[in-house]
Amino acid sequence: MQRVRVKSLMPPGHVRTPHYLRGKIGTVERQLGSFPNPENLAYGQPAPAKPLLRVRFTMADLWGDATENPNDTLDAEIYEHWLEPAPDAT
């Protein structure tokens, strides 16, 4: 399964990448196809279609020791332009 990291960006304006997932590493659960980029759509601009993916994170990766159960998971839809290859596990 493809491991990806959510980019740690803080751009101004409307984005649909939740803050709590930025910089976190997950695996691609499925490809969803392409959808008009909400970052343009929100302002009534032409919105080119961008690939959207479902990415699965473990609760341990999101919350560390504070997690209730490390094997529980969180899936979220993240646009491809918000993803980068995950660094190799050390």
């Binding site: 939740p18 209730e68 159960n69 094997n71 529980d72 998971t73 969180l74 899936d75 979220a76 839809e77």
Partner: peptide, 26 residues
């Protein structure tokens, strides 16, 4: 799991909870 317990749902530790954050078009 804490939220679920407040709804009266208590799951065994062996059950995996999968939360889905509906962040975009699905």
């Amino acid at each position: 799991r804490t939220v679920l317990s407040e709804f009266g749902v208590t799951l065994p530790d062996a059950t995996t909870v999968r939360v889905h954050d509906s962040t975009a078009d699905m």
